[in-house]
Every structure is written in structure tokens, then in C-alpha cells.
Design a protein around this nucleic acid. Structure first.
Length: 305
DNA sequence: CCCCTCTCCTGATCGC
DNA sequence: TGCGATCAGGAGAGGG
């Protein structure tokens, strides 16, 4: 399940391979991959074809590729990277391809035969970019870029809060927003309009580190406790990103398991029935929000309610 | 506005 | 061996 660290690994790979490249071919092979593009497959293709990728951006779990359209390819044909981020050949992008990996999406470079190939893009240097997605929860769309709070965001990403790795992330404001929520704290961690990038795995890990049960009410926790929880979520995602750099190939993220990180470093997710690494109590799993929640019943006491 | 439930999808796995 | 049921969950639509 790609959450912030896995998506950031993908973003870096896209930045390395796509910036300055011009799209010479696009095929949409499965209608669900373009369902978020309201104007339809043909329009999506038309907006990407011939465009040049200016950069590779991310907020939370959303990726996007700002596009420069028309005319001369920018002066990077000799391989010179653009020196102004987000600006290529003097043009400012006003649209972007938004990519969400959903549950199982992968962005892969090179020729390949994939059962779940959804979109293929040919680039001006001859390479092929493949969007492969088994469960089809992911997809692509082309959106106008809009300015929100000093950031240029695709319209469909405008409602997503900054993530903890964003230099402009406002920790105090997020803690205050968490405190205002009259709902269980795990819901708040997963609410991408409060803080983005955290999914089910890192929510469980952060709650374990903070010794909090996810069903505790956010509004009943102290601001310092909420701050520590946010810091724990940030730390676990940073550590995962660090390990992602070594245990994942930068372009071939295995979202279905078997990475070094998932084998070694998870303390909560998927460890039900095993001893807590802190106290030895047997970890438990319960249903919450139609998904699994993993916790230590000794370290993370269940609220009465 | 706020909160919460449901739905989309397909491969792996399990029990009979 | 086959087959149906269950499970996994990000995000948004829609209900209360």
C-alpha cells in the first residue's frame, strides 16, 4: 500500500527519468485508469500528447507532473537539466498530470509485459513509462494548476493538506486542527484534509509509538500528546523513506510486500498474535473503519466509552 | 459544516 | 480439484 514514503520514492524516480522529456505517445488501456478525468480518455490523451514534463511533485499520496505545452521543446535536448524548478524553457506550467497510485499502482520505466497495464506513455528519448495497477483504485487525470496558500496545486489536490515532509508544514496549526476533531484519533490521522500522507500502516505505527489506542477521541487528548503523535507519524515515515531508498529500487516499488522495510521495521501493522516489541503482550487486531487496526492491548489501552 | 458509512476492484487465501 | 466467501484499503460520494 503506497503511503507517503513509497509515493516519495516513486516521485524521485519520475523526477530522474521524466523531467525535460516530451510525450510522443499515450495509450489508455483500461477505462478506470482515467475515470477521474471528467472529460474522458480522448481528452486526457490530447492534453498529454506533445507536452513536456517540467517537474515531478507530490503532496501526501498524490503525485503530479506539471506540463509545458506546445512549440519548441525547451533547451534541454542536450541533456542539460532546467535550472529553474517548475519552469522549463521560460514557460510556466498551467496543467499537470495527476497520478494516484491507489492501492496497487506502479509507475514503471522500460518495455515490459504486465497483466495489469493500464496506461502506456512513449517519450521523446524512446523510453516507455507504464502505469500498472492491479486493483484499479489508482488513476491519472489532467488538471489545471491553481494557487492555494502559496502552492501551485492541481485542482483535484487543492483540498489535500500539506504533509509532514513539506517545508511549509505548520505543525502547530495541524495540532490545533486535530484537537478540534470530535472523533477517534485514528480517523484524524487518516483524514487527508488534516494532515496528508498517512495511511493505515503508518497510522498504526504512529499510534503504537505514542502508546495511544486509535479509538481514543482526538478532542480528549492534550495538545502535547497530539503533537507527539504527529511527530511519531513523521518519524516513522522518514525512517521508512530512508529504508525505502535502500530496500526498494527507486522505480520498482513492490506494493504487495516482501521489502526489507516491511519485514524488519514494523512494530504494529500485521503483527497481531505476536508479542509487542516493547512489553511482550500479545498484539491484537480489530476492525475499524472497514480496515484492520493493529495495537498492543497493554501499551495502548482501549478507551472505555 | 461535521461526522460516518459505503463503494469501487481483483488476486490471494481459506474452508468445505 | 473446484468453487464461493472473505480479505486487503485510498478516497470520495452521499447520508444523517
Amino acid at each position: 500500500m503506497p503511503e507517503l514514503p513509497e509515493v516519495e520514492v516513486v516521485r524521485r524516480g519520475l523526477a530522474d527519468h521524466l523531467v525535460g522529456r516530451t510525450v510522443t505517445g499515450v495509450e489508455v488501456l483500461h477505462p478506470r485508469a482515467a475515470r477521474r478525468h471528467a472529460a474522458g480518455d480522448a481528452d486526457l490523451i490530447g492534453q498529454i500528447l506533445g507536452a513536456t514534463v517540467a517537474s515531478a511533485e507530490r503532496r501526501g499520496k498524490f503525485l503530479w507532473l506539471p506540463l509545458v505545452h506546445g512549440g519548441e521543446p525547451p533547451g534541454v535536448l542536450g541533456g542539460e537539466p532546467p535550472d529553474l524548478p517548475g519552469v522549463l524553457g521560460g514557460e510556466t506550467p498551467d496543467t499537470a498530470v495527476v497520478v494516484h497510485l491507489g492501492m496497487s499502482g506502479q509507475m514503471l520505466f522500460g518495455e515490459g509485459v504486465d497483466t495489469h497495464l493500464r496506461i502506456r506513455v512513449r517519450l521523446d528519448d524512446g523510453t516507455l513509462l507504464r502505469f500498472v495497477d492491479q486493483r484499479t483504485f489508482g488513476g491519472w487525470a489532467v488538471d489545471p494548476l491553481v494557487e492555494v496558500d502559496g502552492a501551485a496545486l492541481p485542482a483535484s489536490v487543492a483540498h489535500i493538506a500539506r504533509d509532514p515532509l513539506d517545508p511549509a508544514f505548520d505543525r502547530a496549526a495541524v495540532v490545533a486542527a486535530m484537537k478540534r476533531k470530535n472523533t477517534e484519533v485514528k480517523r484524524v490521522l487518516l483524514d487527508q484534509t488534516v494532515v496528508s500522507g498517512i495511511g493505515n500502516i503508518y497510522a498504526d505505527e504512529a499510534l503504537w509509538r505514542s502508546r495511544l489506542h486509535g479509538r481514543r477521541l482526538a478532542s480528549a487528548l492534550t495538545r502535547p500528546a497530539l503533537g507527539r503523535l504527529l511527530d511519531d507519524a513523521t518519524a516513522v515515515m522518514r525512517e521508512a523513506l530512508d529504508q525505502g531508498g535502500t530496500s526498494f529500487d527507486s522505480l520498482y516499488v513492490n506494493v504487495n510486500g516482501q521489502s526489507g522495510y516491511f519485514e524488519r521495521s514494523l512494530n504494529a501493522y500485521g503483527r497481531d498474535g505476536e508479542p509487542c516489541r516493547r512489553c511482550g503482550a500479545i498484539m491484537r487486531r480489530e476492525q475499524f473503519m472497514n480496515r484492520g487496526s493493529h495495537f498492543c492491548p497493554h501499551c495502548q489501552t482501549v478507551p472505555r466509552r
